[in-house]
């Protein structure tokens, strides 16, 4: 067997883990921007994963990075946590 050709420093593209985990299967609730204009830009600092951005064009959540912790929705208006799973009740 030949040794595989690998980078000396074990590394990968950003978000490789997220891709591997098939886009955030760990999330039970997702933050949804309900009123972009009301979102307090401070949430960009509160977010542990750098998953939310707020600029002139409004607020946006990167669902590849978001773990669904809900801190942004707790700290700011204009964001609501909604269940990821919308199938029949009683599954969870």
């Amino acid at each position: 067997m030949a040794v595989k050709n690998l980078p000396i420093v074990p590394s990968g593209d950003p978000g490789a883990l997220v891709e591997a985990a098939n886009y955030a299967t760990w999330r039970i609730f997702r933050p949804v921007i309900t009123e972009s204009a009301k979102v307090n830009p401070i949430v960009t600092l509160y977010c542990p994963d750098g998953a939310i951005t707020v600029d002139e064009s409004g607020a946006e959540v990167n669902y590849k990075l978001c773990k669904g912790c809900g801190i942004c929705a707790k700290e700011s208006e204009g964001i609501q946590m909604v269940p990821e799973y919308t199938g029949p009740k009683g599954v969870f």
Partner: peptide
């Protein structure tokens, strides 16, 4: 050229 180090192997 951002990359993640110590990614999952």
């Amino acid at each position: 050229n951002p990359r993640g180090v110590n990614t999952v192997a």
